[in-house]
Design a protein around this nucleic acid. Structure first.
Lengths: 295, 295
DNA sequence: TTTTTGTAATATTTAATAAGTATGAATTAT
DNA sequence: ATAATTCATACTTATTAAATATTACAAAAA
């Protein structure tokens, strides 16, 4: 008596509305004609609206039926589309990946990944956010980020980390500094200068690495300024407030009056790593990581 | 084995997606928990997509499930509306338009529209609901509302927005405040007062506009209270807890012991806009919009 | 530790109901 | 007339949703 309308009703209705003929519609649906009759009748009862006029020898739609036909076509199409879309998302071919990164990852790793993703999974959207190491780790834990690009040696339990880019370090010097690529023999030559570094808090690994570079050169650097922005560091160097050591990749993309000397002979490397949560449920993420690590 | 998805599945799914708890969802649906479990499982099989993660002790949605939740909300709302429309058409009327509005739209725009509609389309029913900007946008997206009246500068993709009423702002002052229309020279005269505003969350555009009015007056307002109801704001002003700036139209329709000074010389205007979904399928809506925009 | 509590998943049975068969009534065509 | 075609009704069968009872597992409490 008090049934609920179901999609089956809509499918049957549409067949009758198209054929305007119960037997033919029933054949198309591979059910018996009486079954179809009762279902349509039931449907009219549930909706409390007459949908067809059975006018002795021919069936036709009422205005309400005409309206419903349009709606049912829309609903069934929309449903089909939804199912397709759903399957894609479930298989990781669609959806969204939220990526966090350090500014320095924007020089090569991240853009390359975005291009590869777009090529292989054009339906996957990405959202990008520049964040500190710490903020990325925390965001990944809270499931606010799927993938991060950090400079860290290790990460808390539950997260996975893989190096994705290894870079040399470079000295950043003011344009008029009395030393150039040719004259450069070793890091000890700048031991008397003030140093401008990324703050320890922002990237402990970077900080420790730079310290060890200087130690290997036989001195402890005099750190005059700390910053979290490459832009700021360059600006300070430009204004003769000190010199810096940065991952080489960072020298591209800024318009600055400074010069660089790449520290090729030094063993330390600036390592950028990808981080993600082991049990992340985003199906698109695995595809993304596979793409990132495949080479 | 090879079943077909049914609306029942969607209704069950939505309950679980909302409660994230099988037993509670089952109770809400007045069915048994095992029945619900099997139906959801069947649904996942039919769709060939995992929708929930049952993580021993807690249930959560997969990205695919998250996507489906939004779609199901839309589909079920649309269906409900379709049934209502169908019944009206079957009964010889011609449909229903569901309108949402901010309280301030009730002073002129909405009543006028209702009168015009009644005159031109007497068989079209309207349902009205007072909602915040945000709630209207969300309801329009989920097909719970056909037309909204908001104060927003822009709306998400897929929605259309058109200004329909431009209003000045007015100062709201306590009855005994030592300033009146004659003595009023500019907004700077009230720069020392506390301000009571509609909350930023409720109407960001209003908030920003009031801020810019004060900035133009050379000060940053000291906001002491925020509210979402004009009634409350007037009450607070009446009790000398501060002064307010509101769209002028709001001053009508309330019985309050406050006085108003219209800020005629100020360039900012309170703009009320109509919003609707581009691909809304309600046939009565287009007529309504035409009527609304024709002047 | 063991017990209790709260959770979802199985197994089995029962009840609801969609769909089938057979048939009838009404209409048109021959 | 008679036959053929249409949809509706009565009744039966087969399918399947949903209920009951139970299990399995984990977390919280004793």
């Amino acid at each position: 008596m008090n049934y609920q309308i179901e999609l089956r009703h809509f499918i049957y209705f549409l067949a009758v509305a198209e054929e305007l003929h119960y037997r033919k519609a029933a054949e198309k649906l591979f059910i018996s004609q009486p079954g179809l009759s009762t279902q349509i009748k039931q449907m009219e009862e549930i909706l409390q609206t007459q949908l067809f006029v059975r006018d002795k020898k021919k069936v036709s739609l009422t205005p309400a039926g005409e309206f419903l036909k349009g709606e049912v076509e829309f609903i069934l199409n929309h449903l089909e589309q939804t199912q397709k879309q759903l399957k894609l998302i479930g298989d990781g071919h669609s959806g969204e990946i939220r990526i966090g990164f350090l500014g320095s990852a924007m020089q090569n790793v991240v853009p390359k990944l975005l291009l590869d993703m777009k090529k292989k999974y054009p339906l996957v959207h990405t959202s990008l956010e520049e964040l500190s190491n710490k903020a990325q780790i925390s965001a990944i834990f809270r499931d606010k980020l799927d993938l991060g690009f950090v400079r860290l040696a290790r990460v808390p339990k539950g997260l996975k980390i893989k190096p994705v880019f290894e870079d040399t370090f470079s000295l950043v010097l003011p344009k008029d500094y009395p030393l150039d690529e040719k004259g450069f023999k070793g890091i000890h030559q700048v031991s008397q200068d003030d140093f401008i570094l990324f703050s320890q808090d922002y990237s402990p690994l970077y900080y420790d690495t730079v310290m060890s570079i200087c130690e290997d050169g036989g001195f402890t650097p005099n750190v005059s300024h700390k910053s979290v922005h490459a832009q700021t560091i360059f600006k300070l160097v430009e204004n003769n407030l000190g010199i810096a050591i940065i991952p080489t990749a960072l020298q591209y993309g800024f318009q600055m009056e400074v010069k660089f000397i790449e520290l090729k002979k030094i063993k330390q490397r600036a390592i950028l790593s990808a981080v993600w949560k082991e049990d992340n449920r985003n199906p698109a993420l695995q595809n993304c990581i596979d793409l990132l690590l495949k080479e």
